[in-house]
Nucleic acid binder design. Structure first.
Lengths: 128, 128
DNA sequence: TATATAGTTGAACACATGTTCAACTATATT
DNA sequence: AATATAGTTGAACATGTGTTCAACTATATA
């Protein structure tokens, strides 16, 4: 996770600029590279089936690692690795009680992102 | 893009269920696999730096492939490949005028998704 | 103290994917 | 008709990344 591909910033490009004014205006309007990098990393967390299911499950109820493993039919190890990514980005928090670690969502952001995502899916493709 | 990893659905898991009632409730509340799969694919489009920049640029102005290539310092080929993915998911539309192909956003969904994303980034990490 | 279970971790592996390259189409210009 | 430019496409390549496996820690129980 969280790796950039090489962006070749001092760029010789294989084309003449068609609309230099447009390019200049947009260049000024673009967020800085760090913000865009962080934003891409945020979406990466939702871009994997396993993590997406974990997030959805936690948006329903607090669950321990075993619960999630059984729900998704995967090993505790696989789940734990993904939970680590989600923890590092502040999407989930956890609480240890005896041997069991309970995970839950940190805040409402995840639910909001789900909502917006579903809106797109169900607006233009099937159904409509 | 758009490949699923093996989900091992008829699962022997290496753990006993801790809270079977929780698992059952959540299982019922989960969207069907196809919806989650589509949702993950949607977020994948935002999860790459190049595509993210293209989308942001197009959220500012209509641009041709050359404009985008110069803006991002990449080859037309690289840009074109990414635009194809964005087209297939109905995020961008295009119009050909002579030799030039102009791309723009299909609707407001992209801007909405950006907005929600930035909200998360600037709420819990840096700043405050 | 010995054993069992919940969970984490790092390395290895296999697969997914973004970029490059070369060849191609389509339109415009000479 | 020949040439130049905008853009697309498929294959090859290199890199990124999710899962597995084995070893480990921590807590609870016998």
């Amino acid at each position: 996770m969280f790796n950039n591909r090489n962006m070749n910033s001092d760029s010789l490009c294989d084309c003449g600029v068609i609309h230099e004014d447009v390019v200049n205006r947009v260049r000024k309007a673009m967020p800085d590279n760090e913000s865009l990098y962080n934003l891409a990393n945020l979406y990466k967390l939702f871009a994997d089936n396993t993590r997406l299911k974990i997030l959805w499950a936690l948006s329903c109820e607090t669950m321990c690692v075993c619960d999630l493993a059984v729900l998704l039919g995967m090993t505790k190890s696989a789940i734990s690795h993904q939970l680590k990514s989600l923890r590092l980005c502040n999407f989930v928090k956890y609480e240890k009680t005896g041997k069991v670690v309970y995970y839950s969502l940190t805040d409402e952001h995840v639910r909001n992102i789900f909502k917006i995502g579903f809106e797109h899916i169900y607006t233009d493709t099937e159904i409509q």
